[in-house]
Each structure stands twice: as C-alpha cells, then as structure tokens.
Nucleic acid binder design. Structure first.
Length: 219
DNA sequence: AGGATTTGACCCTC
DNA sequence: GAGGGTCAAATCCT
C-alpha cells in the first residue's frame, strides 16, 4: 500500500476500491473464507458511507438484485453481518455473493464484501444486465457525477436510487456501487489494474465531509 | 400466491 | 470449542 487509493468522487459519494480482504473490520481470524462453501471465492471489499436518509443498514444498489439469506453477529463487531446472494443464483447459477457489515470503528461506514462475479448478466437470457460505466466515470483521478443516492425507505424496496437527477443525464441511472461492481466484473476494464484498487464510498454531502475523507485515506 | 426477509439451527474450518 | 457461513422454516410484504 505504497500508493494512495484510486478514488472517484461522485456527487454525494466518494469511492475507493480495495482488493484487500477483511481489513479494518472485526472479522480477521478466520476471515479468508477458503472454506469449501466459498470455494475459489474472489473477494473485493468496498466501504460505503451509510446514507443519512433511509435505512443505514441497507447496502447500496450495485445494479444487481440481491437476496438476503442470512445475518449473523460477528465476534468483536458491534453490528451484525448480512449475507446476500444474487437473486439469480438459482436461475443462472450465478455465484455472486456479498456480505454487508457496518464498521464498529466507524458506524457511518458500511463494508461490503463482494464474493465472486456475477455471471447472470453474461447470459443472454439473464434479466439483469449490467452495462459498462460511462467513460467519464472511470477512475482517472477523480470525477464528479451529478447524482446522489438514497435508500428507498420501502421495506421491500431495499435498493438505493438516484436522488438527484437535476441534469437529467443518462448516467443518473447508475448506482454508485453498480459502477463499482461493473468495474470489478469487467476485470480492470475501468482503466486501472484491479489488483490494488481501493473502493470507498462516502457521502460527500455529509456536514463532516472532511472527516469522512480522512476515513477514506486511513482505512 | 409468490417472492423476499427474518432468524435459529446446523455445518464446516481453524 | 469458537466463530463464520449457509440452510430452511416461519413470517411478512406486494
């Protein structure tokens, strides 16, 4: 980690990628998930600032639909970890999973761990399509996108939606982590080697923005 | 009625 | 034995 994490700045969110496993969270001792259940799990960690609006426990929309299959309290962690798998796991054998957990050291941040890639959107019959991110969203040192995300308050609609579409641009349809996930799934097509990327997503409109940024650097 | 979520139990690895 | 991950029945919601 001899270089600062690549970062994106979306209006309302900052992103930084990480390929590290289980850093900064309570999970550590058995965190490398090499169990037979997870097989050759490829893991990527994303940290997301919890929304000020809506349910802070809800993970951001990443362009895919997830089904929660478990939740568990983790040792040394105040907050439980939620376990999600792709809705299309059955239909398309999609191996993608993710876990969502709030950091006990900073409850304002959710740590989302993606496990395996989606294959459902690779299928021509798959209903969930993940289009590539717009070129100007690529991590070229920091970009600004004109939209915010907020969590739908609906009990069932656990999806983060663009809040501000003031420009009416097409990319307002992109969820922040949707973009991140797309970049992950594109295998570094984002223009940067995905080996040492760090993704942090922070809510830039938080009043304590500077401290949020500091978190992004230090974590 | 069908699908998603919740939650406790079970399984596996260390 | 401890801890994390998954299963599956019950429940809730649309």
């Amino acid at each position: 980690m001899d270089e600062a994490p690549k970062s994106l700045i979306l209006k309302g969110w900052k992103l930084a990628f990480s390929s590290d496993s289980m850093r900064g969270s309570g999970a550590s001792s058995q965190g490398d998930l090499t169990s037979s259940r997870l097989e050759v799990a490829e893991r990527r960690v994303i940290r997301v600032a919890v929304p000020e609006i809506g349910n802070p426990e809800l993970p951001p929309d990443d362009g895919h639909t997830w089904r929660k299959y478990g939740q568990k309290r983790i040792l040394n962690s105040i907050f439980p970890r939620g376990y999600y798998r792709c809705t299309h796991q059955k239909s398309y054998q999609c191996p993608a999973k993710k876990t969502v957990q709030r950091l006990d050291v900073d409850p304002s941040i959710l740590e989302v761990t993606y496990i395996n890639h989606h294959i459902c959107h690779l299928s021509s019959t798959a209903p969930s399509l993940a289009p590539p991110p717009p070129p100007h969203l690529l991590p070229s040192g920091g970009v600004v996108v004109n939209h915010l995300l907020t969590s739908a308050a609906s009990n069932s609609g656990k999806m983060w939606l663009p809040l501000s579409t003031e420009t009416g641009e097409g990319d307002a349809e992109y969820g922040v982590v949707h973009m991140a996930d797309t970049m992950f799934n594109s295998g570094g097509a984002a223009g940067t080697s995905n080996s040492f990327m760090d993704l942090l997503i922070f809510q830039a409109n938080a009043k304590d923005d500077s401290s949020v940024i500091r978190h992004g650097i230090n974590l």
